[in-house]
Amino acid sequence: MEEALDHGALMDRIYRWQRRYGFYDATRKYYLLARDPMIEGLNPPAGGTALEIGCGTGRNLVQAARRYPEVEFHGIDISREMLNAACNAISRRGLQGRVRLARADAAGFNPATTFGRASYDRIFVSYAVSMIPQWRAVIADAAGRLAPSGELHIADFGDMAGFPAWSKAAMYEWLRWYHVTPRPDLFAAAVEIASAVTGESHARRLHRGFSWIAIVRRP
């Protein structure tokens, strides 16, 4: 629990001034390039439910709620700063009735106690596994909370295999300043986790490997 509180405080310190002055969303659109392709690929069933782990400023929840108007959305984040921004974004767009938020540590989250739900048709994680220390356990737990035929979608930085070595090294170093660690074994982890739920996984490599999307489908 102490580790979770420390991580939440770290996220607050990193994003407090960026969130308050609108810097976060204004800049992230230029390099969090897999967010919209991930949302486009969710395709949740009408009347279904979806959860975002690490919802940040609520940008993805707003986009997804607009795209899929017959779906109920939930979102969690460990940062109070980010949740405040998400609450404001959802309120401004009149989505309070369809989007619910809670402060929670992804590594210890129980949707049954937080939202009264045991499973979801879609769970998505956008550029958060690279910031969650226990990311493997988090996505394994998420896959276990999928409803039948449910899907887990993960968007994040990739291995940048198509980039020159110097630019890849520079990008990785810049990300480290913000406590971001790309997961080069994300696709391999998705394969293992899909097998554990007798499902299948799918890997999408975008922008010369700059962006990755991993999908786990439960039967």
Rank of each mutant, 00 (worst) to 15 (best):
G58S: 10
R59L: 14
R59H: 12
N60V: 09
N60F: 10
V62Q: 08
Q63S: 11
A65S: 14
R67L: 13
Y68G: 01
P69M: 04
P69K: 04
P69F: 01
P69S: 04
P69E: 05
E70H: 09
H74R: 11
I76M: 03
I78A: 11
I78K: 03
R80S: 12
E81W: 00
E81S: 10
L83K: 10
A86H: 07
N88D: 13
N88A: 10
A89C: 02
A89T: 03
I90P: 05
I90W: 08
R92Q: 13
R92L: 13
G94D: 06
L95G: 04
Q96N: 11
G97W: 03
V99E: 08
V99R: 06
R100A: 10
L101V: 04
R103A: 12
D105R: 05
D105F: 03
D105V: 04
D105G: 06
A106Y: 08
A107W: 05
G108M: 09
F109S: 06
P111R: 03
P111Y: 02
A112G: 08
T114F: 05
T114R: 07
S119T: 14
R122W: 00
R122L: 00
R122K: 10
V125T: 13
V125N: 10
S126M: 13
S126P: 12
S126A: 15
Y127C: 14
Y127P: 13
V129C: 15
V129W: 12
M131Y: 13
I132S: 09
Q134M: 12
W135N: 12
R136Q: 15
R136A: 15
V138K: 11
I139Q: 12
A140M: 11
D141K: 15
A142Y: 03
A142N: 07
G144N: 14
R145T: 06
L146W: 01
L146S: 04
L146V: 09
A147W: 00
P148E: 08
S149V: 01
E151V: 11
L152V: 04
L152I: 03
